[in-house]
Each structure stands twice: as structure tokens, then as C-alpha cells.
Computed example of a mutant assay.
Amino acid sequence: MLMFVGLGLYDLGDISLKGLECVRNADTVYLEAYTSRLMGTDVAEMEAFFEKEIRVLSREDVEQNPRDIIERAARGRVAFLTGGDPMVSTTHADLRMRAAAAGVATSIIHASSISSAVCGLSGLQNYRFGKSCSVPFPAKGWFPTAPVETIAANLDLNLHTLVFLDIQMDRYMRIPEAIAIIEEMAAKRGIEPPALYVGIARAGSESPVVAAGSGAKLKETQFGPPLHVLVVPADLHPMEREYLEIFAGL
């Protein structure tokens, strides 16, 4: 049995009771640590809390070499831990399908996700979001502009855009850096950069930071430690605008 267990947004307090029971009863516990991370805890604390050894997985372990995971799940109970909700990432859906193809039973224990948390923190209505996108760290000779094209397409449809920010090993993209990259992408594509952003830091913690405003304003805002995420809003409904005025300083 391969059990996908969501850990929630920020720390060990976010896991459900059902998820906790599943992990403590597992024969093997894996932690996927590349799509998202719980910034309010670490692997050592997780191992003490769950009373289990945790095997940390890289992207290659999951996407290219998942044989060990599937073979262990064929012999016993395997808990596959992820930040947020397990099935928001397509790489996890792929692993579940591979397990099913190998005749391994699977289950999902859902948890809070940034995809829903941004709506509560920003007041932006969930049914008004279009396709999401991710802003990667640029590399030498590589500067994709697809994210700003997604944002522009959503704005044309009057839809909000959830923008995920890159995570690499011990490097986390921050909101000011992401806005600067989006503006550079827009300039390269001859697209008008977004006029309004909502920046959110440490969703799920006791002290999240939420700020709305222009790119210039948010690049000067002190959001504090990661994880950070961005939203590019479309035209605001009066209730959305009032919510942002009250809770995000618009």
C-alpha cells in the first residue's frame, strides 16, 4: 500500500489525525522535499514526532527512479509525505499511476494547500483563478517567459493568477526577486507588467504576512523568511478590494 499523506502548510501541527495515524503505522516513510517544504520544522523534528525514520527524496528519486518506493509499497505500508496537499503536484499523480500499473494499492490523505490558503489570506475568490504558473530562478543562457504569458492570458480573461516561487536546495525565491523577474519577462515579451500584486509569506504560520500593491511597493515590503508566494489579481470585486484594504494594506 502506498499512502500519500499531506503535511499541510507550515509545521507539524498541520497534519490531520488520520495522517498522523497513517505515518505512525507505516513500515517505511518517505518525504518528498522538492515541490514544497514545511519551514516551521525539519526532518529531525519530524522523525521524533512520528517516531519513524524518514527517507528524504529528491526529484530524481520520484520522477525517474521510483522503483524502491513502489517495491516497498508492494511488500508493506509506505507513507509518502508531501508539503501541502499530496495531489496538487502532477509528479505525485504520476507516481500514483505508476504504483497502480504495478498492482500496488494507493490511498490519499488530504491536507491544507497553498492553493486554497491564498484565497483565505487574500480574500480573492477561488472560482476566479485561472491557470497557475511558477517563476524559476534564471540560469545562464536560460530565461523562460512562459510565466508572464500565463499571467497575461489570465488577465485577458479577467482571472487571477497564483504564482509559485522557485525552491532549490537551501535557496528560496522571495517576493521582491520574483516581481523583478516578472517585470523583466514582461519587457522581453513586450507585455505590460502587472499593475497589482498580492504577496503572501509563511501561510499557515501564526504570523503570515500579506501585502497588496504595485510592484514597486511590494519590492520594498519586508516579508520576512520564506516560503513566499505571489498572486496577480484581475479586476477586483468590491468585496475582494475591501478585504485587501483591511487585511493586506491595499
Results as ranks from 00 to 15, higher is better:
V163S: 06
E177T: 11
K217F: 01
S36P: 11
G83L: 11
A101I: 12
M239W: 12
R75Y: 05
H110I: 07
Y34V: 14
G130D: 11
P238Q: 07
I175Y: 01
L157F: 08
A186S: 12
D11F: 03
I151V: 15
R77Y: 02
A74Q: 14
D85Q: 12
M173Y: 08
A139M: 13
H237G: 07
L157R: 13
V198N: 01
C22H: 10
L165C: 08
A111N: 13
G120W: 10
I200F: 01
C119L: 11
E32L: 07
S214I: 04
T221V: 05
L57N: 04
S58K: 08
V104A: 00
M1I: 05
K188P: 10
H92P: 07
A26Q: 08
A44K: 15
R72I: 09
I182V: 13
F164I: 15
L17S: 10
I179A: 03
V88P: 01
T106Q: 00
Y243E: 04
A44S: 12
V231I: 13
E184R: 13
K52V: 04
A212E: 05
F164Q: 09
A201F: 04
C133M: 09
V231H: 00
E149R: 15
A99N: 02
M239E: 14
V231R: 02
V5A: 03
F247Q: 04
E183G: 05
L81Y: 01
I200N: 02
V88E: 00
R59M: 08
P147F: 05
V163F: 05
G190S: 07
V209P: 01
L250I: 10
G199L: 02
R202W: 01
V148A: 07
T35G: 04
S122I: 08
D27L: 03
R59G: 10
P176F: 06
F223P: 01
A74H: 11
R72N: 13
V23M: 05
L162H: 07
F143W: 12
L244P: 01
E149D: 14
A48V: 11
D235N: 12
V23K: 07
S214L: 03
R202C: 03
E184P: 06
P194K: 10
P233Q: 09
M46S: 08
D94N: 12
A146Q: 15
Q125G: 11
F50W: 10
L17F: 10
E184V: 07
D94F: 12
R75W: 08
L165D: 06
G215D: 00
L157C: 15
E177G: 03
A100P: 06
G249M: 02
V118N: 02
I175D: 00
R202N: 07
A195R: 15
P176L: 04
G123C: 14
K131N: 11
G83E: 09
S36I: 14
G19F: 01
D166P: 13
D27F: 06
K52P: 07
T41L: 04
L196Q: 06
E21W: 12
M173P: 05
G249C: 02
P194D: 10
V135G: 02
Q222G: 06
L250P: 01
R202V: 04
G249S: 07
L7P: 11
L7E: 06
A195E: 15
N65K: 13
M1N: 09
E192Y: 06
I182S: 02
F223S: 01
F247R: 12
N25Q: 15
L157A: 15
L95W: 05
E47G: 11
I200V: 09
V198A: 03
E32F: 06
